[in-house]
Amino acid sequence: MDSPTFSDGIAVLCLLGAVQGVFLAAVLASRHRNAVPNRLLAGLMLVFSLDLAMAVYHASAVSVRVPALIGLDLPIALLYGPLLYLYVRTLTSERPALRRADLWHLVPFALVTLFLVPFFLRSGAEKLVLMQDPSGSLQTRALAVLSPFKLTHGCVYLALVVRRLQRHRRRVLDGGSEAEQVMLGWLRTLTAGVVGLLAISVVLYVVGARGRAAVVGMDPTGIYDDLTLLGVTVFVYAFGYVGLRHPSLFAPTTDEGPASDAVPYARSGMRPEEAAQHRDRLVALMETEHLYRRGDLTLQDLADALGISGHNLTEVLSTQLGQSFYELLNGYRVREVQARLLDPADAHLTVLAIGMEAGFNAKSSFNAAFKRHTGMTPSQYRQRQREAV
């Protein structure tokens, strides 16, 4: 019996990655909050999974035993860019909705699919012959052009995504909430991962294209295809890890809280005097325990500390304090920073160090929150106070 090859190990990893991708797609599609962006992201994960599964099919003996499916994955890569771009656009827009004009993004995929229909309709035996000699068909001869076209197509969409993120970053840094800061970080990380995958694909395509003819699907003899698949698989696994560690990224709340909390709380069962008591306990807890200094504090953590439900805490914040959870935290953090910037005992500390100790997680979110509360940056505030002395 032959010993396992590198491609055998990659095949197992890719199949597991494909299964995980389908599971993640199902979870994302079931999210009701931010439904449109999450469904687009689910579509992207599903395309990744299908591409992984078909790559294993091409690189294994299955394609020889069941050749009818050969080549069905050729247009799939033309969906990566549109799905990623539309996901980023809807997630960073005030109105996360798709427009009829967005169908134009599918035109390259549709045209390539139509062009390949004659190849798809060939018998399995004919497809096997064309895998050995691509010159026997217009469609297989076009692979020499189709592959670089798909890479170029991906680069164009990544440029659009990066441009969109740059514009969104300027808006967030100019006064975005901490939740928006976290989401911006996620989008930048996701985009960086896709950029890395595309860079690997381009480099390995250029290296692997030397001295070998275009093939349909994967080339079982080429380590370049193995490495490309490994990169995609690692990306899918990393995506799943992030989803498990930070589920709020795929069901984010805004500074105004969940949509259901925007309506009156008439049916919550909490009497006004009870809400007032919870308010007093909340204020006392924040001022004595300084829980806002915890950068990872969540609404549920604070609710647990008070011994009430997260929904009831949101009601107390809204009806008794007129604030959201993030507004409450950032208000306390900014006031502490203001006090410490005036304290001679903290004069040796940098502005950023004081902000981090007050509970902010990043310089950008710190500056944005401080400016939103005071009308100036922390550095400007310290400088003006020094000049006033």
Rank of each mutant, 00 (worst) to 15 (best):
L91M: 15
R33L: 06
D255H: 09
V156E: 11
G269H: 11
G222E: 06
L111Q: 05
G240K: 13
L342W: 05
A199I: 12
R382N: 04
A214C: 03
D301Y: 02
A142C: 07
A214N: 09
P258D: 11
G21L: 08
L138I: 10
I223K: 05
A97S: 12
Q380K: 14
A368D: 04
I200Y: 00
L291R: 13
F109D: 04
R279F: 03
G185Q: 00
Y85L: 01
L158W: 01
L328R: 03
V172I: 15
G310M: 07
S177K: 08
Q385I: 01
V22E: 05
L146W: 08
Y265Q: 02
P96N: 07
F120V: 07
P344N: 10
G154L: 12
A213C: 00
D133L: 09
L40W: 04
Y265V: 00
A42E: 06
P258N: 00
N330C: 08
V47L: 10
A55W: 07
P264Y: 08
L229Y: 15
P82V: 04
M286T: 10
V316H: 08
Y381L: 02
D261E: 14
V334I: 13
Q20K: 12
A125M: 04
A68H: 14
T189P: 01
V316S: 04
A368I: 06
L138R: 12
D51S: 03
T113E: 02
I223V: 15
R188V: 11
A125G: 02
E126V: 14
V27A: 13
S248V: 10
S309D: 12
Y87F: 15
V206W: 07
P247H: 08
